[in-house]
């Protein structure tokens, strides 16, 4: 389990990094290394050249813009974002989902942007980007561009990033007023990739009636899946029937597959159960937040 030979550079500015990448388009960007290094060590991928971005100070920011959202640079660790109190306030789903990303030691090194770019549909953060409508800023020697989550995830472990492009920052919008969120997942062991995970966001109108419901799914589709469940709650009320309908509707958008850890049927059952649990929790959260907003 030793990687094949590769060359390595560790630029300290983004400009240097982009120039290096432009000069060696077959190179790979090294962020936290929690996905890339195991692949290299097991010789499942061979990388001729590594461009380590961990020395680029300008990518280490977390900017919280109240009412707008959270921006975080490419070398912000899962653990830093998870512990960021303001970020949590502005978009609580970030914190809730990050709690389920791997183990503390991996969160200490792995980056949230790296996780988004890795585009694993079993990862929590790609789904969160899709559910919340986040955007990714990428840069190359040609300049910068923004990619919406929708345009980003084009296949399993595949994004629309071009060779020579480095993701520099991700943006996740703030939770609007009278909205609530929840996240839950079931994994075989604490910290493992989920067998199935669900995040939900519920918006209420001024009278407390459900205005919209969306849920995002982890590990039950090839690319992060988001399903609009609003139609299951026609009277704006959270009913048991509505939750059941939501679970069944969600399933029609998902493609749970069997592997050595779980059958497809079981994953479907988890998607069902978690949909009802998480949508109900997000609804309760929305109610609590709406109340708090009124009193505040």
């Amino acid at each position: 389990m030793k990687p094949a030979a590769f060359t390595y550079q560790r630029p300290t500015t983004l400009t240097q990094a982009l120039a290096a990448y432009a000069a060696a388009p077959e190179a790979k960007v090294l962020a936290g290394g929690q996905s890339l290094i195991p692949l290299m060590s097991m010789r499942l991928t061979s990388v001729p050249e590594l461009i380590d971005i961990n020395g680029i100070e300008e990518l280490s920011h977390i900017h919280v813009e109240r009412g707008q959202g959270v921006r975080f640079g490419a070398i912000v660790r899962h653990a830093q974002l998870h512990a960021h109190a303001e970020a949590r306030e502005v978009q609580p789903l970030l914190h809730a989902a990050l709690s389920h990303v791997a183990h503390a030691t991996i969160r200490n090194r792995g980056t949230t942007v790296g996780s988004i770019v890795h585009a694993d549909a079993s990862g929590e953060m790609p789904m969160i980007m899709s559910l919340l409508g986040g955007t990714l800023t990428v840069a190359s020697v040609e300049g910068r561009r923004e990619i919406t989550a929708e345009d980003l995830f084009i296949g399993p472990l595949e994004t629309s990033l071009q060779a020579g492009e480095i993701a520099v920052e991700a943006f996740v919008p703030a939770l609007p007023a009278r909205h609530g969120v929840a996240f839950d997942e079931i994994a075989r062991r604490h910290g493992d990739y989920a067998l199935c995970g669900v995040g939900a966001i519920v918006g209420l109108d001024a009278d407390g009636a459900i205005e919209h419901v969306r849920a995002g799914y982890v590990s039950v589709s090839e690319t992060p899946a988001v399903v609009d469940l609003t139609g299951c709650f026609p009277d704006g009320e959270l009913t048991e029937q509505g939750l059941k309908d939501a679970a069944e509707l969600a399933l029609t958008h998902l493609e749970p597959e069997a592997d050595i850890h779980a059958s497809a049927e079981y994953r479907a059952q988890l998607a069902r159960t978690l949909t009802t649990r998480v949508v109900a929790a997000a609804h309760a959260d929305a109610g609590a937040r709406a109340n708090a907003e009124v009193t505040a």
Binding site: M42, H103, R189, G191, H261
Partner: peptide
């Protein structure tokens, strides 16, 4: 509750790593 050797019918061990061979953590 967790561990097994997941051989496929050709005799390949499909879970020959700590990622997929589920040794319990302290949390389990």
């Amino acid at each position: 509750l967790y561990e097994r050797m997941a051989y496929d019918e050709t005799g390949q061990l499909q879970n020959a790593s700590f990622m997929d061979f589920l040794m319990p953590y302290v949390t389990e």
